[in-house]
Nucleic acid binder design. Structure first.
Lengths: 340, 340
DNA sequence: GACTGGCACTCGCTACAGTCGAGTGCCAGG
DNA sequence: CCTGGCACTCGACTGTAGCGAGTGCCAGTC
């Protein structure tokens, strides 16, 4: 069944009013606040249709209407335009991100910036190792039987692992190992390394074989197979705005979900094309988040994508504004990464 | 004014009951649940005195008594014995911490373990750089004018910074720089490095001077002066247990405080002797946390202390249990660090 | 056929009165 | 110094009533 333009305008008005007032909106208030050009009674008829179609609902019989998840979906897809950022916001983004000394620093600043601009919970995934290439591998002797393996990725990520060698390895051998490993692996995408590492173990001189074997095990198991993803989070205090009306009274499930890296990664770390993704309420696969919406997108230097970032908040959120902010921040971060 | 033994027993009973039931406790319930050997009326008289002295109070005129912050303080100082951990808890700690591959991993596991055992918010400070020594400094060329400086500390921490060189530096010079820097700084406490770095810049051959100068700036400014502290957090969902009765209805101030690293560091990152510290309610210097208590202690390999860890929860918490758990976990972590 | 004004109806919210009961403070007596 | 008894307080809960925002429906108008 088709909805004519006016019904769509009514839906849009309901969403906008509800988002800003947080109260069910009635037909009378609607015609007063928006130039719909019709009477409340007409609006009521339209509302009845919208309700029948599942776009809005009444919390109680004698209350105004509230958008459903489906209503928000329609609003996002067809009724809203991405708001351009205000100059103040643009300046804030630049000011915030300039002067980051370090990948950690970039991620940290980004996540706080996002939380501050959107007034929601912000989530930023560190550049994924799976999509990084090896820039350099460093072996630092800790003792004769211990090495610290430091991997520097082209995305700026640095990971380290302690390697317990099967026996003592002299300093010269460590130098050889370092050279060999770098010759073979530097520049390779992390996902392409397994066969290379395999080859390394086989080609290596006999006396280095045992050390190289344990080294390769650590490398493959802790860096490649379970590719270590990291996540930064900020703005959880924003969940308490709207005083428990959002999230039907309990922050518990939300806070629990936010503690699970796996969940967050699923939310914002998707591969997908570079479009912005919006998940509304029960579209979400996690029960804990059925009262929340997520706006996320990928970021990376140039047009490649190395990680995701986004915000999470009540379904009653300012979608156009948040979408715009998330996109803008992702773009700036991408530029920042491209410079390094 | 002195409190006799029975009054103290009454206070202890009130604290214990209130902590477990979360409801104001009355005189009748008290004599039923504890073997005090006296009648409710007597208990009432004792309560009146305790209230006058500020150890307990009545939420409403016709309600039972609730401990005040001062009452908890007395309880913690004089009325409670540290609970020995159950074997199950000991096993949990060992099981949880065995198999950590990495300092990050240790800290991560520790903070989750603490949150799980105490059912409170857990906070763990990474080993402080200020109390670490330099184990090794690595310089990785990124381009001819860029280096990645990687510092590995004896505590296992690894920090990296991008260094923009004033001009191109050939590979051999980087090797020289690396050697010089390590000869001078390896083994030094980070806090002792400034004069050493100063000397380095002066001693270095003229052609390396500019590079060494920028290098030393980065080193001193980002690693020594503003000593980068890091913090891990877990268990925020535990704040919602006790359904908003704790924290007088709003998690907001607590969540805000937990987002401020500075605040957390002040809470758990104190120098102090190796005793366990308990901050109760308004003893806390931050207004946001006046409804919360913190139990914290230092940890480190052997008897030295390299960082702090602890838990944060409502003033109505199981102090003896949490103190025991915090201590035990700190001890295990210390042992773990000593092994590396 | 679409829109509008009018009207009866629903139902959550608030205020108010009344009851109940847990808990207290006090006092006289052991 | 402790205890049992007793009057009192006051929050929690219940039921009732009135208010008002908002609705659905219908007959009338353009």
């Amino acid at each position: 069944m088709g909805l004519d333009d006016r019904k769509l305008a009514v839906l849009r008005a309901i969403v906008e009013d509800y988002v800003s007032t947080q109260e069910p909106v009635g037909s009378k208030a609607l015609v007063e606040r928006h130039q719909l050009g019709v009477s409340p009674a007409t609006v009521r008829n339209d509302m009845a249709v919208l309700e029948e179609e599942g776009y809005i609902r009444q919390p109680h019989t004698s209350a105004g209407r509230v958008p459903t998840d489906r209503g928000y979906r329609l609003f996002v897809d067809r009724l809203s335009r991405v708001k351009p950022l205000s100059p103040a916001e643009r300046r804030a983004i630049e000011r915030f991100l300039v002067g980051a000394v370090d990948l950690d620093d970039v991620v940290h600043r980004t996540v706080r910036l996002l939380a501050q601009l959107t007034r929601q919970v912000a989530v930023v995934q560190y550049p994924s190792l799976a999509r990084s290439s090896v820039r350099h591998l460093e072996l630092v002797p800790i003792s004769t039987t211990r090495l610290m393996l430091v991997m520097i990725a082209d995305t700026g990520r640095v990971e380290q692992r302690l390697v317990e060698l099967p026996g003592p390895v002299p300093a010269d051998d460590v130098t050889d190992l370092r050279r060999l490993v770098n010759e073979k692996l530097a520049g390779a995408r992390l996902s392409d390394t397994p066969p290379l590492v395999q080859a390394l173990v086989e080609e290596v001189p006999a006396e280095l074989r045992p050390a190289m074997t344990t080294l390769s095990t650590v490398l493959l198991e802790t860096l490649v197979e379970r590719h270590e993803e990291r996540i930064a989070l900020a703005g959880t205090a924003n969940l308490t705005r709207g005083g428990l009306l959002d999230f039907q009274g309990s922050l518990r499930p939300i806070l629990e979900a936010l503690e699970e890296e796996v969940v967050l990664l699923k939310l914002i770390g998707e591969t997908e094309p570079s479009t912005t993704r919006v998940l509304i309420g029960d579209e979400n696969e996690f029960d804990n988040l059925r009262a929340a919406s997520v706006v996320s997108t990928g970021y990376g230097p140039g047009s490649t994508i190395v990680g995701g970032l986004g915000v999470l908040g009540p379904t009653r959120m300012d979608y156009p504004g948040n979408i715009a902010t998330v996109r803008a921040v992702a773009r700036y971060v991408g530029e920042l990464l491209a410079q390094n």
